[in-house]
Design a binder for these strands. Structure first.
Length: 140
DNA sequence: GCCAACGTTGGC
DNA sequence: GCCAACGTTGGC
């Protein structure tokens, strides 16, 4: 199983919106970046991901699971763009802020820190466990 | 609200 | 195929 991070601006699509979709999940559509798309194409059913709020909040707020593998993005006719579906698994007990991540030596190699603009990105198992621990949240 | 960083587009 | 111009993202 692989781990990922999905970034969203909460005023556009928030954790509450995502959680509201329940087990059915929702397309992670609208991504128009090749790197991000390529990561989504690599995702497998059951892969886990962090849900990150960008902009004002800047914190990991929940855990999601890939519930449909890569398929065409329904919001465009342009066949270059694919996406996956994700569903909310559980919110973080304590959101883990970007500040916390940046100040933790275990996490300084995270893509979130090194390439802040990439909206879908891989997370290593070690990073996954470290952030879940910081958030006092079950990692699986 | 600003601006740096980065990705994409399109003219040549 | 290069690169300048432009648009967008997201941290500060």
């Amino acid at each position: 199983m692989s781990y990922w991070l999905f970034k969203s601006e909460p005023s556009t699509w928030s954790w509450d919106d995502q959680a509201g979709k329940g087990a059915a999940g929702e397309e992670w559509d609208g991504v128009r970046n090749y790197q991000a798309r390529n990561f989504m194409r690599e995702m497998k059913l059951g892969d886990r991901g962090f849900f990150y709020h960008s902009q004002k909040e800047k914190a990991v707020v929940g855990i999601v699971e890939v519930c449909a593998e890569s398929h065409p993005d329904s919001t465009t006719d342009d066949d270059r763009w694919d996406c996956v579906d994700i569903k909310a698994i559980r919110p973080f007990e304590k959101p883990v802020t970007l500040d916390q991540i940046k100040s933790d030596s275990r996490l300084e190699q995270m893509v979130l820190v090194k390439n802040s603009r990439l909206s879908v990105q891989p997370v290593t198992r070690d990073e996954w466990l470290a952030i879940c621990a910081l958030g006092q949240t079950k990692p699986d």
